[in-house]
Design a binder for these strands. Structure first.
Lengths: 254, 254
DNA sequence: CGCCTGGTTGAGAATCATCAACATCTGTGG
DNA sequence: CCACAGATGTTGATGATTCTCAACCAGGCG
């Protein structure tokens, strides 16, 4: 319990230093994630010029809304964002969680309007990248064009993995996989892979994974009972990562 | 029964005329689907030059295989193709069905190797588009670049719709939605929206929709009993499209 | 302090998976 | 052209996982 509070402090500190308005792509700690390409200094400067950094968004504020005219894609700089779509028959589907360094909004390009809405799950800062300018710039910078093709391709590949998760895996496997995913993304940002705070509600987790709140809650409780991880509200502490992995890939019959 | 045979002939005829080797993008009946952009004549010619058209593939032949080095994206010219991925723990997941005019293989761009395999579900012809050349050409033709961004964005948006389907909808809704999707894609190709032959097996349908073969079979039988559609092996005849839609969106409690 | 949202836990119900038998279709070789 | 074998599809009976409904608990905020 007291252990968990410590890890929470670490995260909170991480936040504060990210809310730095002076940041640019060149010095951004996230650029190896957000722009994992060999853009040279001059090229980064050109990209720099089209990117807009606004004030941090408050929890609940929207980056964009479904059916609004598409204009920009967004890179998360700090905090976290969820994307969700409302279907014709009015049900909400969470389509993704986005952490610092990750890019969202690309589903709007096809129809020139956003296919989903995006809102901050906590205080968050984002870089807004106007897509028309990005297109122009990509005409001149082949590596930038290639990078964006890759980003979109990655989103496709990840969605397809998620399809498999929803289509073939049990509640245990889905929850375990999400925990591992968040852990891995934390690690990539040089944060703890074992301790983290979930920014989203149980309802959002369930919605994303195609499960009810109750099932998510039960699964997490069971994981705790089994000693796989500890749960204290939104604080997660992965105790036995190996076991969690074996649950996720189904080799561990829970 | 005899009625159905007739519709089958129509499809078969459609096939034959598509297996035309002389075809090019300019005269391709599918170009409004495959390239729904304002490429001018000269631009189409340039695209033309990089596209490769090989002999038709036999049923079961692969366009590409998972983990192979990524090289090209493919447009289906005739027949149909399924994409599927094998997960770490060895289970197969069908990630998509592709019909004439549709483009696949874009999941390979991110990691420079294909994230899935693709095989012909029946005799099929495809256009192979080497991606490095496409990238170069996109540098010079802004509308082509834009088109490919749109294509990939569309794939993302469609995958996310599929996520919703798997995550929130019943077996009935999933099957109904797939039938409507195939119907709509048929219609787009100026073929019958009501009568068509499913190129894929029940197993593939179930795999794609996250259901077992038995469930797919039962659902189709029930639909037939309810007078929504008629099923004769792979021949589908949509009898009450309105009812089918209401089943798909959940407003019809079957 | 108490309300309200969000989370947990329990009991019963429903959907879909599993297992099993049977039917039908396809294509191959006699 | 027919017969047979293997693959594919259908149908039924049973069972497991997850959902639904309901009660309860905890924490945050006016």
């Amino acid at each position: 319990m007291t252990e968990l509070l410590k890890s929470h402090d670490v995260n909170a500190t991480g936040h504060r230093c990210h809310h730095d308005y002076q940041i640019n792509c060149g010095n951004c700690r996230l650029n190896s994630i957000c722009l994992p390409i060999a853009l040279d200094l001059h090229e980064v400067e050109q990209l720099e010029e089209i990117i807009q950094r606004s004030r941090p968004l408050q929890k609940g504020e929207h980056l964009y809304r479904q059916d609004q005219p598409f204009g920009s894609v967004f890179a998360v700089r700090s905090g976290s964002v969820k994307a969700y779509a409302i279907t014709d028959n009015g049900q909400e589907q969470v389509t993704g969680f986005y952490f610092p360094g990750e890019v969202l909004g690309m589903d709007g390009i096809a129809k020139n309007k956003y296919a989903s809405s995006a809102r901050a799950m906590e205080t968050a800062a984002v870089c807004e990248i106007p897509f028309d300018k990005l297109g122009e710039l990509s005409q001149r910078l082949p590596s930038l064009q290639r990078h964006f093709f890759q980003l979109m391709s990655q989103e496709i590949a990840e969605d397809q993995q998620l399809l498999t998760l929803l289509s073939k895996n049990t509640a245990d496997q889905r929850v375990a996989t999400l925990m591992l995913s968040i852990s891995a993304r934390n690690k990539r940002r040089k944060l703890s892979a074992a301790n983290f705070r979930l920014p989203m509600s149980r309802t959002d987790i369930g919605n994303y994974l195609g499960l009810t709140v109750e099932t998510v809650s039960r699964v997490l409780s069971r994981f705790q009972k089994l000693g796989v991880l500890s749960v204290d509200n939104k604080e997660i502490n992965i105790i036995d990562a190996e076991l969690l992995r074996s649950v996720a890939d189904g080799s561990e019959p829970t």
